[in-house]
Design a protein around this nucleic acid. Structure first.
Lengths: 209, 209
DNA sequence: CACATTAGTGAACACTTGTACACATCAGTA
DNA sequence: TACTGATGTGTACAAGTGTTCACTAATGTG
């Protein structure tokens, strides 16, 4: 019988999650993946799937958790690299796009999941986005960049920022990963969106007409 | 044999498209639908499918075309009802949400398709959004509401507006259709997003800091 | 070391899937 | 009226599906 030693605990589990991501990265939609297909891609017998997941939705949920880690890592990097306020937007967008490029499948999964089949996955991703927006609000508060805004207005602004960046995912993910020119276009456009939003925030309620 | 008379030309075609939409409306993802499933829902024998579509992607493309009609109808209604500039945002968002409610399945299909499996459907929906944004820019130009903006900046603003509204789809479509309170919340939040964007546009390049 | 638990395997099941084929019935046209 | 093409139906089949079962090797704990 083919060697059965599980070298590390949770190795197969990881193989299955990576297999699902790989298929998503190849253009498949997560909702259309089947258990057999994923196990085949992972090089594992179909039965093994059930040792780690109850069904595909369950696997999706666990992918959302890992997605959370990726996002937090991205946030940490942004906090470490964005030192001057005037470069804040360009730097952040740059970091975001770099991560989207390096974790293409993950971000594809995220974009798919927002309107996906599983309500739980949907809610998980929305929750990640809310968390991200609230952390962004905290940062801006800490940097004293939005003192004139009420908490609610700052939250709204950050919500809109996160949504706009998230929507840019659909821009990045349709262009080929090597097409640096198009990537640069998306980068510029996303940055201008954020500038527009921040100009709005800066003048919010002060010159609302 | 069951009666075979096709009462109207293209009746089965319509039945199949409606069946796919109905399944999407029930929470299924378009990418996970199969030919047999759709024909079953339509009350039609599987073979009939091939008389009208080459495969599910083809059906999706034709749905995008119909989606275009829905969007244009919405745009017409907005143009007819939005008479005063100061009510522009609230009225438009209201009309959008009303249409999203009345064509729930269609808009679900749209939200799904943005990160869907078929590149062609994806491009079709993005194209509809671009058209929508450019029409919005024309309207604003005509109403002299954005004279201080360059064409490029106005286009960017409208692009961001359309994206923000489109993203609100994911908010509307997760709440139950009867939950009027939550719907009102989404309505308010979307309107505030747009206000923020327009404040940004109004101050764009005039007081950018 | 003995033993319970975990994580792997292969065979089998009942069912669904996409697609092909031959055939039937309608609508329109020459 | 006879023909033609479009649209509908039923049957068939090979391939793929999710899931269960009994079995086995490795791991960690007493």
């Amino acid at each position: 019988m083919a060697d059965k030693q599980r070298r590390k605990p949770g190795e197969t589990r990881e193989k299955l999650m990576n297999a699902a991501l790989a298929l998503v990265g190849k253009g498949r939609h997560f909702a259309s993946l089947g258990i057999r297909e994923v196990t085949r891609q992972a090089g594992v017998v179909p039965t093994s799937f059930y040792r780690h997941f109850r069904n595909m939705d369950d696997l999706g949920l666990q992918l959302v958790d890992e997605l959370g880690l990726v996002l937090r890592k991205m946030m940490r990097e942004a906090r470490a690299n964005v030192l001057q306020a005037d470069k804040l937007i360009d730097e952040s967008v740059g970091i975001f796009i770099a991560h989207a490029r390096n974790n293409r499948s993950f971000f594809m999964f995220m974009a798919q999941g927002l309107a996906g089949e599983s309500r739980a996955v949907q809610e998980g991703i929305r929750s990640e986005m809310r968390y991200f927006a609230s952390e962004l609000a905290n940062d801006l508060r800490r940097l004293k960049l939005a003192d004139h805004l009420s908490d609610a207005d700052l939250d709204m602004t950050c919500d809109l920022v996160v949504r706009s960046v998230a929507f840019s995912l659909t821009d990045i993910l349709v262009i080929s990963p090597e097409d640096e020119y198009q990537e640069e276009q998306v980068r510029k456009r996303t940055a201008r969106f954020l500038q527009l939003i921040f100009v709005g925030a800066a003048n919010w309620k002060s010159h609302p007409d």
